[in-house]
Each structure stands twice: as C-alpha cells, then as structure tokens.
Design a protein around this nucleic acid. Sequence first.
DNA 1: AGACTCACG
DNA 2: ACGTACGTGAGTCTC
Length: 690
Amino acid sequence: MELLKTYKDNAYLSQQLATINLAAPIKFSLPDIEFSSFDLEKVMTVFSELEFKSLLVKVKELRDKINKDQGKITKTEETPAGERILSPGEAKFARNTQKFSYQLINDDKKFASFLKKLKLEKIFTLDTETSGLDPIASELLGLSFSWKEGEAYFVLANKKRLEELRPILENDKIKKCGHNLKFDWRVLKNQGVDLNGLFFDTMIASYLLNPSNRQHNLDSLVFTELGFEKISKVNLADTQPEQLTIDFKGLDPEKLSLYSCEDADFTNRLVKIFTKRIKAENLTELFEKIEMPLIPVLGEMENNGVKMETEPLQKLDKEVGDKLTKLEKAIYKSAQTKFNINSTKQLKEVLFEKLAIPTTNLKKTKTGFSTAEDELAKMQDLHPIIPMLQSYRELNKLQTTYLNALPKMINPKTGRIHTSFNQTIAATGRLSSTEPNLQNIPTRAEEGQKIRNAFVAERGYKLVSFDYSQIELRLAAHMSGDQKMIKAFKDEEDIHTATAAEINGVKLEEVTKKMRSEAKAVNFGLLYGQGPHGLSQGAGISYWQANEFIKKYFAAYPSIKKMMDNSIKEARAKLYAVTLFGRKRPLPEINSSIPMIRKSAERMAINTPVQGTAADLIKMAMVKIAEIIKGHDDDIRLLLQVHDELIFEIKTDKIETYTPQIKEIMQEGLKLRVPIIVDENIGNNWGELK
DNA sequence: AGACTCACG
DNA sequence: ACGTACGTGAGTCTC
C-alpha cells in the first residue's frame, strides 16, 4: 500500500487541506498516535490516501459543527476546542494481511467447473462489470460471484456463458445479494436476462441503518466496517482524475477480475454484518417487504424512460430566449449599467448601492442582503427594475434548468429520457430523482407548465396519473386520532375549508377565499413544525395574526398538538424519529443544548413520521402494482413517481382495465382511521394531467 | 467547494 | 436575545 509522502503529492488532498482553515485545533487519538488538526500535514505520512481522505472528512464535519455552535454560544461560555477519539472500527486501518482465492473464469473448462460449484449454492453475492455507468449504453464485460469469505470468481462474459447462467440468475428461489443491485438488474435486463430473487442489497441496508448518510458507496463501507482498503477504480484503469467515467473495456481481464472479485467478496462480507444489524434494529420487514422488492420496480421505471417531444421545447426556448434578451436590455437601461444579472454579488451592488433601494425588512445572507424572490417581492413597488428582475429570474431558470437541459438527456438509443430514481438519499425515506430530476418539472408558473406538455405518451397510449389526495394531512389525522379532523375527512369535506371554519368559528359556507388560503398555510406549516414567523411569511399575514392562528388551530385540533409534542418526546427518548412502517431516522441533536440546533431536530421529529410514512405507503403501492402489471409491459408501464403520485403509460384500450385495480391498491393498501383518496387523470401529455 | 437561488412535493 | 418550515437536485457565480 502506497503511503502519502506529503500532501503536495496530491492536488486533491492539497486543496482539501487548504479549505480546512480551522479557528481552533481538534485533537485526534488513534491507538498509536495522537495529533492535532493543525498537524495534519505532518502526520499524513502515516496514512494511506483513503485513510487520510476519511480523516479530512471528519475534520471538516467537526469544523462545521464547531463553527455552527460558536455562532450561537454566548460570551460567558467558553468555546470548547473540539476533541474526538476515533472509534476502534475507524481506527482499525487493517493492512493487506489477508489471503484471497480469486479466480478468473475465461475458458470452457474453468467455466464448467465453476458452474458446478455455483449450482450448489442457494444464496450468493454477485456483481457485474460493464464498459460504463449507463446500463443502456454499456456493454456487459463480466460477472463476479462470491459465497464464502475470501473466495470469488469472475466470469468473463460471453453469450454462451450468460445463457448457461440464465437459469440460476432467473430462478427466484436462489437468493442474490449485491451492492446497488438495481444497476446489475438493469444491465442484465438489457441483455435479456431477468435477475430474480433479489435478496440483500448492502447499499440499501446501509441506508436503512443510517438514512442521514448520503454516501453509501461500497469502498467506504468496506473501509469503515471491515477496515479494508479496496483497489481503487482509478488506479485500476489508469484513469486521469479529470476523466469522469472510467472505461473498463480493453482492460487486462486479470486486473478486472481481481477488482471485481474483491467487490463480490467484500460485499458478501458486508451482507453478513448488515443482516444482523437490520434484524437488531427491527428493520427486517421494511427491508424485505418494501425496499428490496422496490429495486426491480425502480429499475423497470428507469429502463422504461419517458418520451419527450423536442419541437414544442425548441419553440418555447426561442420565445423565452427573445423575452430574456429584451428583459436584459431593459434591466441594463433601468440600472444604467451593464452587469451580470446572474451574479448576486453584482446584483446587490446595483440594487442597494447604485440604485440605493432601501434595505429595511430585508433578510440577510452570509454575504449581505438577500435578493431571493421573497425579498424582491417586498421591493416590488420601490423601483421598476424589480419586476423585470423577477421575470428574468423565472425565465432564466426555465431556460437553463429545463429547456436547455432536458433535450440533452434524451437517450439516442431509445428516444426517451431515463432518469435515475435514488433509493438511498432522502433521510425521510422518500425517493429522489437525478440526471435529470423529473420530480421538479415546473407546474406552478404558467410558462413552466408548457414544459410538461413535451412529456408525451407513445402513439396508441395515454399518460395516466394517480395521486394521493392530501396524504400527509390524512396521515396526521390518523396518527393523532384527532376526532374533528378525522370527521372532516370522513365527511369528504375540503380540509382547508373545514380548518378555516374551525379556527374562525364560522360555518363551512361562510368561509372566504382568504380564510381558506390562510388555513391551507397553517395545515401545511404544521406538518413542518412551523412557528408563527414562518406562518406569517407563508400566509402573508402579520406575526401576531399568525400567532393567534396557531393558538386557535391547536384549540380546534387538540390531538394534533398532542401528537406533535409526543413526536418530540419520543424522539428525545429514543434519539430517532420513526414512521408507521418502522423506518427510523436518527436525530442525535434532539437533546442539544443549543436551541437552534435542538429546535431544528424537533421540527424533523414532527415532520419525519408524516413525510416518511407517506413515502413508505407509496413505495408499498408501487411494489403491489408492479406485481399485477408484471409481464404486461406492452399494455402498461410505470414511468414516474413524484412523492405522492404515480404516472403510467397505458395502452388506450387497457386504461379501463387497470385504473380500478391501481386505485384499489393505492387506496386500500393501508387501513387508516380516515379514507385514503386517490385521484386519477388521463392525457396525451403530462401537461394535460391536472 | 461553497453560496445563492429556485424548481418540485 | 435570537432566528424562525420539512424533504430534495441543478445551474451559476465566486474564490
């Protein structure tokens, strides 16, 4: 293992080190060495690159925490210098002392003997190697297998071998483990092989065990759990750091085999560790019944993709471009200077210095007064430049984030957009979507709405959406057991109108538009643990009015208040928030002595059970729906999930067949004290679904 | 890399 | 006295 000579050897680490910039030293203790964070450069020679990187991450985490804390601690309190003892697991920087038996299977004889052994196994770990990271475009180079510690096999892929492996891969009685199995599932699916029996994904296990971590990559799990430093991909392929993707194609099979076998072997070891921990944390049901079965569902959605028409976007792009050019000119004229409107730094100078727009009541950021939309709205009448800036911002966002970006994401092979649905990112249990994010396509602004029109159904099909109506509020009503709110939902009242009637003490038919919109703001805000200030912003009313509103709200719905207090109490005792399905979110800061940090954790304790249960619920529905539409992908395909809605592409004459079944699954999957209502919409494009 | 802004539920 | 709503991803500028 290569130890670092000095940080100057490594541009990345050198930059990292420069950004640390600590005000006070942090002390570190390892079994055989003690050092302060000021001495990082001196001690770096005893670490390998990966060790040192992980150390830097820890130092930065601590620095951020200390900086955050310092701002809030009063003068009388001494700021404690950070001190931290690395846990044995972290300190256990095991060196390469282990023995491995890894085999490259690259001829018929070796393959026959390997296959014989594999056939004896009822559970194993596998990993696929491809020429790239996009499962659609990539070529399958090989598969590695492991079922015993220190032993693994790498099969160099060809058609014949894949055919012989097919019965095993497709047999759902034979359990498959892996790390990020969705990728392997998609790769094999595109080779015409159905990977069945997905049993244990270490990435998902790691996520369920610690959903606040955003990184669950294999290398760092192996390092922190087993103290082993895997061969780095970069070293393997001799790739330049600036190269984004690593092409394994043409790589020496021996090297690829070693790398892949290591992946399978160590994933297999992690399976053992995480299985115990999942069980100990009572996460088995959630893991086995929801998260694991969801993998092929998401894989299918990603493979399906969604069709996009580029012509309407190009037309819109031109319109928006013209408007932007005109706005730009008008803004320069109004400011009597040319500047970069996208630079908040320059914009601030223009607004607050050159044009001297008064800054009272404006929010501040770290670098001065904010120019965010909320703040611009406050200045709206003070200068004609403001409305132009607001339009500019809206249109510019539209153009850069959507109009320019989306057409580039159309896959040339399929003519469709294939997003990634990430299952291990959001701390509450929600999915997230990347490359591109199809969960934040505009809907509110009128111009933006047009972008949805470009997402279309294939000829002969329609897009059909199913969305849970007020799902989070219904869950809050159920979980709190609040009689008034339950009754409102049972009577199928408009919940915001009902709330407005309750807090204003008027009859339902006497509720004004204003009363309803205020009530709506409170209903939403309460799910976030909002205080009077936030509500006054959200509802456009004064602080004191907002304060009164909240008081009345809790008087009308006393059990909601009780539930919120209870959520905090429970989190304080257990140090985590929990959903109806047993998903846990650790909240270690719930007992912090620093009010701001503690309050923030308290809001998470209020919000997570509601948001997280809604996420569990729709995931469960997706799994069940996938079962009924399995094998009918010519008739119906699930394309998108947007937190409380599912969007399908259904053959026109099959819509009537599937709609009631899907609705039934979504509405009846979980029995609550209130009905769950699902609304459906049909259209030729996404814009028509409302 | 971090800050800011803004799109969605 | 203080700040002040939950959860995301992406584009752009600045250092």
